[in-house]
Every structure is written in C-alpha cells, then in structure tokens.
Amino acid sequence: MLIAVIVILVLLLIFGPQLWVKYILAKYNKPLSKMPGTGGELARHLLDSYQLESVLIEQTQDGNDHYDPESNKVRLSPQYFSGKSLTSVAVAAHEVGHAIQFNRNEPVSLLRKRYLGSAHKLQKMGVYCLMALPLIGAVIRIPHAVGLMAIIGVLTMLSSVFIYAAILPEEWDASFNKALPILDKGNYIPKQYLPAIRQILKACALTYVAAALADILKLWRWLALLKMLR
C-alpha cells in the first residue's frame, strides 16, 4: 500500500504540472468576438512598440511556442498565431517578453543565452553514455570503467535539470514583469479577464518546471538500470 501511494505521488509530481499547464492553456483557448486582433498581430504590434522591428514572427508546430534568440524570431503555434483567445494573447505577450529580455541584454536572459544550448548537448551525451554502459560492461569487463562512464552520464544529464531550474526566473520575468504589465497597462485586455491572464502566464512560466521534472524521471530510470548492472 505504501509503495502504491509513493508511486502515485511521484506520478503526480512528474505529470501534474504538465497536465495543469495543458488544462489552463486549453481552458482559455476559446475565441472571443471582442478581441481586436490575433496573437500574431498583437506580437507584431508589441514588438514594433518596443522598437524591435528586427524581431520576426512566424508560425511553428503546435506546442512549440518560443522565442529563438539565435534567429531573433518569435514562433507561435498556428492556433495562437491566428487565434483571438485569451491564451493566444497571453502566449504571444509572454514570448514577446522573452524577445525584450534578449534584445535588451537583460541579466535574466544571460543564463539561457550562454548555457541552455550546452545543456541540451550534455543531456544527449549523458544519454549516449548511459545507453552504452551494457556494451561497455560486456566488452571491457572493467568495473571501474563502467562506473566512470555511469558517473559521466549521470552528471551530464543532471546538468540539463539544473539549467532548466536555473532559467525559471527568466520565464517568470517574461510572464509577470513583461507580459502582464504590458497587457494590463496597455488596456489590451478588459480588467475582468486579468485573473485568467495571470493563470495563463503562470502556465507559460511553469512549462520548464514540467520539462525539468520529466528529465528527473529519466534520470531515475537510468539510475535504476545502473543499479541492476552492478
């Protein structure tokens, strides 16, 4: 019974944030007839208002909304790019918030700019190292070599988890120091919708929490495998 409770708690910890984010985004993704423009149109307007005409906007795959600092582009899902919903507006403003951070070279953007790409590469290296452990153990048959590879793999995977956690202040800043004041003070959203906008922006900011938890789950699986190989 205790084991079942622990398993349920772990699953809630891992999947709870992801399910909540998806629920909030879907809940407020309903077209509003009084919305003056689409998410894409709002993003373009806000970028021009902040003298960021060089930042481009384009559509991307569903669920892949982001600002790409390398190409200096805000990318929005088709449903948000062309949609006139609270979610469309909030997501667009959130990604514009990231564009403002990077183009102003704000300190909060420096960690992602310098290290996130490296974290992705390190994570892949870690996965490759851990996948190679059974083969290494069978061919070399040197326990210390296998242990060293295991340590390298685990450390490289952990690095991506720490980076995800470290960039959360940037996500929070994009939502609540950029997007929310812009939408509120600019009167882009009627006051009665602001509580919903806050929820959506919180979901946007916590997207990386879900990603970090998913990486921790992957790490636990590899650690269980390593225990079996000992």
Rank of each mutant, 00 (worst) to 15 (best):
E53Y: 05
N187R: 14
Y164W: 07
A179L: 01
R141K: 15
H66D: 03
P36T: 11
M1G: 14
P181V: 09
L52I: 03
A212S: 08
Q59L: 05
D184W: 05
L183I: 10
K22W: 04
Y188D: 07
P31F: 04
S49H: 12
L148V: 07
I182C: 02
A138K: 13
Y50I: 08
A196N: 10
V127A: 13
A43T: 05
A174D: 06
N187F: 12
E95C: 11
V139W: 12
H120W: 03
Y115C: 00
I182V: 11
W220A: 15
N103W: 06
N103F: 06
A119H: 05
P190A: 11
G153Y: 09
N64W: 07
S159K: 12
Q18N: 11
Y50C: 13
R198L: 03
S109N: 04
K22L: 09
L206Y: 14
Q199T: 00
A90Y: 02
I140V: 15
A93F: 00
L201F: 09
G83S: 12
H94F: 11
P78K: 14
A196L: 01
A43Y: 08
L11Q: 11
V127H: 08
S71E: 04
A166R: 03
K191H: 10
A43D: 11
L12W: 13
L223N: 03
K227T: 12
F81T: 01
Y115H: 14
P69R: 14
K185N: 07
P36S: 13
L226C: 04
E41P: 08
A145R: 00
Y80N: 15
A179I: 01
Y80P: 00
R104S: 04
T156R: 03
Y67E: 02
